[in-house]
Design a protein around this nucleic acid. Structure first.
Lengths: 310, 310
DNA sequence: ATGAATTAGTTGACTTTGTCAACCAATTCG
DNA sequence: CGAATTGGTTGACAAAGTCAACTAATTCAT
């Protein structure tokens, strides 16, 4: 990556941090007239959401609080009869922390008022902004969350409004960005999809959209080539979701469906530069049957026909 | 809006706030081994970026700091020879604050190390994630920034890779969401666009994409109906950009182009529910020439043909 | 099995950060 | 002109956070 691009991103992130520091400050003013400080409210939240099996150290590390500070904070909770400690049976040093009924009530009240405050604030923005906001926040969380926790399950589903356009859009953008392909490629994709939407036999032709945590991350189409030969088209996996087996899942869904629909063979056309896709085809038993150079998408490409007996 | 939708959004925002509170905490640990506290660093930033004409109260309100706290903080800056006060000529109560050379140097060092820290952190994420992150952050800022500051200029441009897919996608999503139209509408849009991409005469047919701060916010197409009659199609304005004259700008570009291209008349087909679009057509002199009910998109609609002598 | 190292948690001493009310002096408003 | 407001300072104080030293239970290495 170029230095200037990284610099620009760093600047954008620092700007956002400054901006959101103020934002969070504004939203947390509601705590001022509650009986809890910000740190207390955060701890209370953790206690309420891991009820029974939270320990002081656990809370300390998740919230990044100093052990000493937390210790005093917890003692004050105990003195206010909001929380109880039970010595851990497994480890004599540890205590298990549970909210008392009073503590749970206090949390419920606090939570409700915080929710109401955010709701009021949110209602001051037009619905379209609200949606944009939530989408953007979710995408930030997803990117920054640890790789383990972001491995939500990839789900395959039937297309919904906007999905077909998305497939065209992402094909156009990604192949232009990664391989420099011209607008003729996007035009070809649009042509294929318009044709598919206009008329397809749902019993023998189908499209799947892969989604991860509600975000579109991939697509694949199976269409009829002849009565006995199925054709796989438009396999796409978002860069952000690569290496998670999305492509394999999509191809396997196609194979399964093609077998069930009574096809005897599957064929597909791809290009030699697409290494990741080829690896999947090879692993599923496809064989390369023909290669032909072409320049349909603005540069010299090696088109390939692959086939598989079902 | 339904209650549950608002609730879900509120929950998402609160989750993000908790999440990002930790994130910011982690990123600010770099300050620990500098000579400045977080509050000091923020004030220093403000001083460096409004050099000469910043006042104590101004900084206090932008950063949300208590006047008393800030007063002491500024005195400590003065004692450390980082900053100077000059009494304001306009207002005897005020002082204008300027960083000394030493102060500017200190800021430069601090800024460089903060930037390096963010860069290191950012480089731990794949480029696709970085891009997603920056995009999402910019979109949050844009939504939450004051309405004045977000009125960047709307620009019209020729389509680029992904744009055509985007037009299809947003038509499909928006009309499904706002009017409950079926997938047949997206199919129609895909058909029109596939046709346009496959073959159009750039001298007499054209597409414009409206963009605001680099984000796509609208589209319009002008195609040949007959040699003397132009047809306007696929006028779309993102909800987030409505009320900013995007639609008018797009229609006017079409009218201008059609006149220059030698057309004598312009026609368009729309539906009665689309009030905002109709207002634009009326204001530009279009006349309603025919209405016809249809159910192409899943519900009873009143299709309308409009015309304008150029 | 045992001594060393680590971990969970506490405590005292301390700094930083932030709040509140009272106050002064210059400015603006009616 | 006097009252209200604004920019800024100060004292007193509370909240938030840091650091090092400590105890007791547990784990690890040999």
């Amino acid at each position: 990556m170029t230095k200037s691009l990284l610099d620009a991103r760093v600047a954008a992130i620092r700007r956002f941090n400054r901006f959101y520091t103020k934002q969070i400050g504004a939203l947390q003013e509601g705590l001022l007239d509650s009986e809890f400080s910000l740190a207390e409210a955060r701890v209370l939240y953790e206690l309420a959401h891991a009820d029974g099996d939270s320990t002081a150290t656990g809370i300390g590390t998740t919230l990044g609080l100093d052990a000493g500070y937390l210790s005093r904070l917890l003692r004050s909770f105990e003195e206010r009869r909001l929380m109880q400690r039970r010595p851990s049976s497994a480890d004599g040093r540890r205590s298990n922390l549970t909210l008392t009924r009073k503590g749970r009530n206090a949390f419920t009240r606090l939570d409700a008022s915080a929710r109401a405050q955010v709701a009021t604030w949110l209602e001051g923005h037009p619905p379209a902004d609200q949606r944009a906001l939530v989408t953007a926040m979710e995408s930030i969380e997803q990117v920054l969350a640890s790789p383990e926790s972001r491995r939500g399950d990839v789900e395959l589903r039937a297309p919904r409004p906007g999905d077909m356009g998305w497939v065209i859009q992402r094909h156009g953008e990604l192949y232009a960005e990664e391989y420099g392909w011209s607008e003729h490629f996007e035009a070809l994709v649009a042509q294929i999809i318009a044709q598919f939407m206009h008329e397809h036999d749902p019993a023998r032709e189908r499209c799947w959209i892969a989604s991860l945590n509600g975000t579109r991350v991939g697509s694949i189409f199976l269409v009829k080539h002849t009565d006995t030969v199925a054709r796989l088209r438009l396999l796409l996996v978002e860069p952000s979701a690569r290496g998670m087996g999305v492509g394999r899942t999509l191809v396997d869904a196609c194979l399964q469906f093609a077998r069930d629909a009574g096809y005897e063979r599957m064929t597909l056309w791809t290009n030699a530069v697409l290494n990741a896709a080829r690896a999947i085809y090879v692993s599923r038993g496809f064989r390369l049957v023909r290669e032909e150079a072409h320049t349909h998408f603005g540069s010299e490409q090696l088109g390939q026909d692959w086939e598989l007996e079902l």
